[in-house]
Simulated scan of single mutants.
Amino acid sequence: MRQLVRYTLIGGSGVTLDLVVFLLLHNWAGMDEQIANAISTTLAITNNFVLNARFTFERRDRLFVRFLRFYAVGLTGIALTDLLFLALTDGLGINANLVKVGSMPLVLALQFVLNKKWSFA
């Protein structure tokens, strides 16, 4: 339970970074939502890996391999969000900002399980 709390708190910092960068790239710079999502999520993944390796899972061995696994798990979040963009933004006309925010709890839950069982096992 302690790990889940730490993962969620660290995830909060990643969510904030992800959302701020996404909003800036998509709304301010006019970047396509899928490209903005890939960039913002990559920054958040890197932030979260560093903090989770240190504080949540307390692992300092095989960091490069663990980062590659963590990033692969992060790619599942990018893919899931992109599928939601296609279905909800492109398909139904729902605002991309709402889709991005709405996808975050689902992505967080999926990634916690995958990271606990694979990236930091």
Rank of each mutant, 00 (worst) to 15 (best):
Q3D: 07
T46Q: 13
L108Q: 10
L63P: 00
N48I: 09
A87S: 10
F64I: 15
K116H: 08
F57D: 03
N97E: 09
F57P: 01
L68D: 04
V101L: 05
M1P: 11
T46H: 14
F85I: 02
M104P: 09
I10T: 04
V21C: 09
G12R: 03
S103C: 02
Y71A: 12
L88K: 06
L24G: 13
G102R: 00
T56D: 04
I78H: 10
F57A: 05
Y71G: 06
F70T: 03
V107E: 01
A96C: 13
F49N: 04
D82V: 15
F64M: 15
F22W: 04
W28Q: 08
K116N: 08
K117E: 08
L43F: 11
Q34T: 15
R59E: 12
F49L: 04
A121Y: 10
G12W: 02
G11F: 02
L25F: 01
L84N: 07
L17T: 14
M104D: 10
D61C: 07
R2F: 14
R62Q: 12
W118L: 03
G102V: 02
K117H: 11
L24V: 12
Y71V: 04
L92T: 14
L43T: 08
R59K: 14
L83H: 07
K100W: 01
S119W: 02
